[in-house]
Design a protein around this nucleic acid. Structure first.
Length: 205
DNA sequence: TACTAGATTATCT
DNA sequence: GATAATCTAGTAT
């Protein structure tokens, strides 16, 4: 099964992204992020780890202090990409959710590569499949995302999310978010239990 | 296996 | 001028 074979009718539409952010973060586990490179090549990977960042009431969210140049994409209507650079080195990929002016997004933290392995390996400079998209910075590099992809639509034929199978609830676990200093008591991280492709795999979670 | 340090820059105060 | 939703390599255990 490749994305091009299951593409018809299974691409997520705008209503999916307008749902509550935490719901979207959970529903994204098991879905496939597809980026088209050219007419015959594309990158795809099964999402195994996400984090929800909510509106002004979430102290860890970039939107906590209102609109700025950096986070403007978060305040657009759901269904676009919010890309930012962290520590001057890595890019992080978010999917904007909920209606316009809410300021919510879901961080894509890790995925299991399905197609375009050669492209990802070249982008990352490594060969280990399990590490290609493990961690938000690595995932962005494997896909070749950068600041020019900020605000890109997920409803285009070049970039979209495919529905896959519905995962059983017990396979999706949640935990505190990683790498933040505020809002650590909120369990807004979702991941596929036992997956070798999830970041922070210190034995188990 | 576990912890620490260093890289490096856009963005916001 | 300080900070940051990270990653990797290196050293210690």
């Amino acid at each position: 099964m490749t994305p091009t074979e299951i593409m018809p009718g299974s691409m997520m539409d705008s209503s999916f992204y307008l749902q509550p952010t935490i719901d979207v973060a959970k529903l994204l586990i098991g879905k496939i992020l597809v980026k088209k490179i050219d007419d015959s090549r594309y990158i795809s990977a099964l999402i195994v780890e996400t984090e929800a960042y909510l509106d002004m009431d979430d102290p860890a969210s970039h939107s906590a202090n209102g609109v700025s140049n950096r986070n403007a994409a978060m305040f657009e209507a759901g269904g676009i990409l919010y890309v930012y650079k962290i520590f001057g080195i890595h890019y992080c990929i978010n999917i904007v959710t909920e209606p316009k002016n809410k300021g919510c997004a879901v961080l894509i933290r890790a995925a299991m590569p399905l197609d375009g392995l050669e492209i990802m390996k070249a982008n990352r400079g490594i060969d280990d499949e399990k590490k290609l998209c493990r961690g938000p910075g690595n995932l962005a590099r494997a896909y070749g995302f950068d600041l020019t992809d900020n605000c890109s639509s997920l409803l285009s034929d070049k970039l979209f999310i495919l529905d896959n199978t519905v995962l059983k609830d017990e396979l999706i676990h949640r935990s505190p978010r990683i790498g933040i200093t505020k809002g650590v008591d909120l369990h807004y991280r979702f991941f596929l239990k036992g997956s070798e492709y999830v970041s922070y795999n210190k034995k188990h979670s």
